[in-house]
Each structure stands twice: as structure tokens, then as C-alpha cells.
Design a protein around this nucleic acid. Structure first.
Lengths: 188, 188
DNA sequence: AGGTCTGATGTCACCTGGTGACATGACGGT
DNA sequence: ACCGTCATGTCACCAGGTGACATCAGACCT
């Protein structure tokens, strides 16, 4: 393992978040980030595949959290119930540094380029959840549809949670959306 | 109105599709496309915001088609039924030039950059459908959830249709997925 | 202590996507 | 014949991203 590694990533992330806050994502160059971090452009691209990735370091851990919860759901749970468990588990991830989460969300939603990347991460998450469902014996297309539905609810709930002034817990918002979804699919 | 306009776009699209087929998307430069089209790089970027857009000219018309169908759905239709009508309407769009559709699909699915863009187009489509649903008096979050569900089904159905050797009609694939979706949301 | 090896970083040159400013030239209208 | 318009061409430039090679701090060994 590296000797300089951990600090480099931290410095890059710190510098990037500051600059994106100050001048926006598009008006910040990678050279600026590297300068503030005391490193070089080339080194930045050794740590991150591209300029956007510096804002998405956490997504792997979030995905892991949700997959673990889904795998650990009770045997009797329906596919959608297992997905609900995964979405509930995600709430824990956002509790630690609420303001940082909201600042990041503001930058992402105001930059199309970053929204694109977020969609990609959510697509990866969807695939991982669907895979975990298949691991529980859920057949296609049920697995994919349940995963897609769950991630959609997750995204809408998270958006509301990060946008509203004084939001209810993420789990509550998600539950409301799951209920609404059942209403949509099975009309009354 | 322009005098050179229509031919320029056609030549660009033709040249681009050929080159993407021959060498792949990433190994094709805009200069190459422009050369084969008998025009210049600068002119390419006057017609398309970026290199990818040349492959997504049709998405606006597809969206229009689906929104129109949704708006025209019977008054008594539930939100999801209206969305089903939109998805059914999309089938007509793909019937004309099947092979071209499949070639394009192959290029897009093999290039992450293009998948990203496709997701963006689908997100735009989702927003348009949700808007049309609200226009029918459907409240939130039902409108958004119905639109999201519909676009998910559309995407999965289209993928299957474009991938399989001898696929059933797109409408049939979509109906199967809608049925499965009802099963997911309202467990039995 | 001294030597070597490893791996993260720095340097440099380069390519490509994308844009702004300005020139050109064909065509329609007068 | 003249003029204005508008698509196109030319040119210079910037930023993201990459490959090749140099450097240098520390780990490990003797």
C-alpha cells in the first residue's frame, strides 16, 4: 500500500469541494484543484478517472450498505420488501454529515454533467440490487423491476430529503413513496 | 431558413454512423466525421452540441409521439394505463428502419459515454410524461412514479426487442413487463 | 549504515472535444 | 447590379485526459 496515498485523496477531495462551492463545477479547472491540493494535474487523474469522480467516492460504500441490507432481509420477505430494507439502510449513510450531503447535492443538481454521472451510479446500484435479488432466487424480470422501482423511490426520497428545509427522516419519505407506488401499479 | 442546412445534417449523420460502425465511437474523431461529410469540425459543432448528439436526433420525435399518445388516452384511464398507451405508441417509431435501429443500439450499449446520454434522454422523456400526466390532473407523487415506471418498462422492453434474434412486437414485450410490474408492487 | 527496489509523484508532450471571433461566399430580394 | 443574410470556413485557443519517462522517499535487506 502507498505511503502518500490517503492524504492525496483527502486533499484532492477537500480542495475540489471548496472550489466547486466557490466558483461552481464548470468554472473550476483540474489544475486549480491540483494547485490547491499541493499536487499536480497528472496525479489527480491517477486518483480519479475524470474530474467528476472526485464527487462520487462514497457511492461504492452506499451501494455496499444497501446490498448488504438486501441480502440480510428475512427469508419470507417479498422482493419489494427486501428492496425496502435496502432503501431504509441507506438512511444511515447520510446522517453523519448532513450539511456536506446537502452542499454536494446542490452542486450536483445544478450541473447537468454531474447529474449524468449520478444517474450512472444509480444504474450501477440498480444492477447490484437486482443481482442480489437474483441471489435470493428472485427470477427475471421481477428482480430487475423491483430493483428499478426501489432505486427510483430512493432517488425521489433522497431528493426531497436533501431539498426540503426541515425534512422528515429519509425512511419516512421512502415509505410514503413506496405506498404511492403500490397505488400506481395496482389501481383502485 | 437555410439553404445548405438539411443536407449538412444528413451528411453528418450518415458519415458518423458509418464511421462508428467501422471503428467504434471512441476511435472516431469529429474531424474524421467532418471530412467524410465534406464539411468542417466547426460546422459539425454548429449542428450538434457535442459528438454524441448526432446519434440522438430522433429522441425528440419519439418523445413527442409518446406524449401525444398519453394526452390522447381515454379520460377514464388510470395514470398507468395512460402511460401504457404512450409506450404502445412508441412501437410505431421503430418499425420503419429496423436494422438501423439495431445497429444504433449496438453502438450505444457498447459505449458507456453513449449510455449516459441515453439515460439523459430517458430522464427528459420521463419528465415530459410526468408533465403530461399532471396535465391530466394526476397529482404528485403519482404522476412521477407512473412516468418512471413506464419509462423503465419501455427501456427494458426496447432492450429486449433490439437484442433478441426474432423478437415479438415491442407492445407485447412491454405488456409482459407491465404485468410483472403489477405483480412486484402488489405482492400475491 | 549503505544499497536496492518499489510505487507514488512530477514533467513534458501530445491528442481531442469544444468554443469564440472573424472572414468568406452563395443566394434571395430589391 | 447591389446588399444583407446566413451557413460555412479559418484560426487560435482552452480544458480534459493520456502515455512515456524521470525522480525520489521510504521499506526491506544485508
Amino acid at each position: 500500500m502507498g505511503r502518500w496515498q490517503p492524504d492525496a485523496r483527502n486533499r484532492f477531495r477537500q480542495a475540489a469541494v471548496e472550489l466547486f462551492d466557490e466558483q461552481g463545477f464548470e468554472d473550476t479547472t483540474v489544475v486549480q484543484i491540483a494547485e490547491r491540493a499541493g499536487l499536480t494535474k497528472r496525479t489527480f487523474f491517477r486518483h480519479y478517472a475524470d474530474k467528476r469522480e472526485v464527487l462520487f467516492e462514497g457511492s461504492a460504500r452506499l451501494q455496499e450498505l444497501m446490498v448488504t441490507a438486501l441480502v440480510g432481509a428475512p427469508d419470507g420477505a417479498t422482493p419489494l420488501e427486501a428492496v425496502v430494507a435496502a432503501v431504509h439502510a441507506s438512511a444511515a449513510y447520510f446522517l453523519q454529515d448532513r450539511d456536506a450531503v446537502r452542499r454536494r447535492h446542490a452542486v450536483v443538481t445544478s450541473t447537468p454533467e454531474l447529474q449524468e454521472r449520478e444517474r450512472v451510479k444509480l444504474a450501477t446500484l440498480t444492477a447490484a440490487l437486482a443481482d442480489a435479488l437474483r441471489g435470493r432466487g428472485v427470477p427475471e424480470p421481477t428482480a430487475t423491476l423491483a430493483a428499478e422501482s426501489g432505486v427510483t423511490v430512493f432517488r425521489l426520497a433522497f431528493d426531497a430529503w436533501a431539498t426540503r428545509a426541515d425534512p422528515p427522516p429519509l425512511t419516512v419519505l421512502a415509505d410514503e413513496l413506496f405506498t404511492a407506488l403500490r397505488g400506481v401499479a395496482a389501481p383502485g
